[in-house]
Nucleic acid binder design. Structure first.
Length: 424
RNA sequence: GGAGAGAUGGCUGAGUGGUCGAAAGCGGCACCCUGCUAAGGUGUUAUAUCCUUUAUGGGUAUCGAGGGUUCGAAUCCCUCUCUCUCCGCCA
């Protein structure tokens, strides 16, 4: 959520900056400024009346005196009630509008309408390792996995519907090794490991920006205000909202392994095969909480952490700076990491690392104190995957497949977690 | 799931209709005292929002959340949420 004060003071600037995103929010901004103005006038009137009421009430010393002011205060109260009701409804309107306005892109974000205008920042290595000497002879991970009996899609859809999968035997062990490896790497780099709940209150989802706009992407538990988490970003980011953090606790760097649940509404027909787009998948998530002036550096650090996993797994990837039109709702700046899938001859997203500035913090009430005397300030939140486990599993299978036979090699970095070094 | 108790400022914990944004203690901060340390003294110490000014000042709201009674609510009533204890059930 954006700062109402900032909108009030620089509506034109905010409008211009938001216009870089796909939609225009000019009408919303205009409406906010108008409603906000009305609201403050009403609020002021109500406050004056309340002040008058308080003064009168305090002056009462005896029952007789009370009798004389009853009428006046009652009249005042009626007026206060109607003003308050009006003020509440205007607040509600303001919230209804502001909750649908995305974060403002940082100034250095390339302006563009969709993913075609994203900017590739780097390749690792410069040329992807192409199986079969540059030709797309590589098999897909589902062909390999199903042939080896280490993953199942058919039975899984009978159990749970489409877009579910089951890992079997060495496939399951590979998945577990990846999780262990990713968590160990994060811990070794100073991250605090967190194991949060997978069910979360709607309030927190509103705080992080998944609600209200993206409700259809979530699994909602019936007759409750609870949802299955679409990412560990939600519980991790929301965790420290209860009281202001001390400056010496920052930056906080958290990592968590959780399952993630997404309804993938609107994705019908896309990536219907394989592990790319599942309703349930595992992910290791990184979340940083930091002072505003640190967030850009923390962002670079976070994305480097995610990249290091790909590099240690020796998977070809590239880093992409998302353009204004392709960025997520809460992000002010976002890098995607895309891993090479030889069977598709394409890079596919495997991590998304966002700097959300104070957008989530404002709604969640995430604050810190610079020192013992200073007032609590909003902090900045960042999040990124390190990495999406299912997609990593698929990338390993595809990139490490044997050119001349069915099967694949285990990456060097994972060998200490497994009792086998190839799957055939 | 059943029964009971509770929710107050950074913490502990008073406060059952007005003088309460809230006692006291602890902690924090500032200053004083002190050769140093320890101890001691004095003061200060919530958040949000609006107005005016932007150094200060003032209004309003907030004692788990929401509603109600009242001239006036931390205090009385109702609903909800959460915590604790006991019982039941259960991985």
């Amino acid at each position: 959520m954006l700062d109402l004060k900032v909108i009030r003071q620089n509506p034109e600037e905010i409008k211009t900056k938001l216009a870089k995103r796909n939609n225009t929010f000019a009408a919303s901004i205009y409406e906010i400024v108008e409603i906000d103005k009305q609201k403050r006038e009403i609020q002021q009137k109500a406050d004056e009346l309340k002040s008058r009421r308080n003064t009168l009430s305090k002056s009462v010393k005896s029952q007789e005196e009370a009798e004389t002011i009853k009428l006046e205060v009652k009249a005042i109260n009626e007026e206060i009630n109607s003003l308050d009701a009006l003020s509440t409804s205007l607040d509600q309107k303001l919230e209804d509008i502001t909750l649908y306005i995305p974060n403002i892109p940082l100034d250095d974000i390339p302006v563009g309408k969709d993913e075609t205008e994203n900017k590739v920042i780097k390749h690792y290595p410069l040329t992807p390792l192409k199986v079969g000497a540059g030709k797309i002879t590589a098999k897909s991970h589902w062909e390999i996995g199903e042939a080896l009996g280490i993953i199942d899609f058919e039975n899984s859809s009978r159990l749970s519907g489409t877009r579910f999968s089951t890992f079997i035997g060495q496939g399951a062990k590979l998945q577990r090794a990846l999780i262990q490896f990713m968590l160990d790497e994060a811990s070794a780099n100073g991250y605090t490991e967190i194991a949060p709940p997978a069910i979360i209150n709607g309030e927190i989802l509103r705080g992080t920006g998944q609600l209200p706009k993206f409700a259809e992407d979530l699994y909602h538990l019936e007759n409750t205000d609870q949802y299955l988490i679409p990412t560990a970003e939600v519980p991790l980011t929301g965790f420290y909202a209860a009281k202001p953090l001390n400056h010496d606790e920052l930056p906080k760097r958290l990592c968590a392994y959780t399952p993630c649940f997404r309804s993938e509404a609107g994705a019908a027909g896309r990536d219907t095969r394989g592990l790319i787009r599942q309703h349930q998948f595992d992910k290791i998530e990184l979340v940083h909480l930091c002072k505003p002036e640190e967030s850009e550096a923390e962002h670079e650090r976070l994305v480097s952490q995610a990249e290091s996993i790909l590099e240690k797994l020796e998977l070809p990837y590239r880093r992409v700076l998302l353009c204004t039109g392709d960025m997520g709702f809460s992000a002010a700046k976002c890098y995607d990491l895309e891993v090479w899938f030889p069977s598709q001859g394409a890079y596919r997203e495997i991590s998304s690392c966002s700097n959300c500035t104070d957008f989530q913090a404002r709604r969640l009430g995430l604050k810190f104190k610079r020192d013992a005397k200073s007032k609590p300030e909003l902090l900045h939140t960042l999040n990124g995957s390190s990495l999406a486990v299912g997609r990593t599993w698929a990338a390993v299978v595809e990139n490490y497949q044997f050119a001349d036979k069915l099967g694949f090699r285990i990456p060097e970095a994972l060998k200490k977690y497994l009792s086998f070094d190839e799957v055939v």
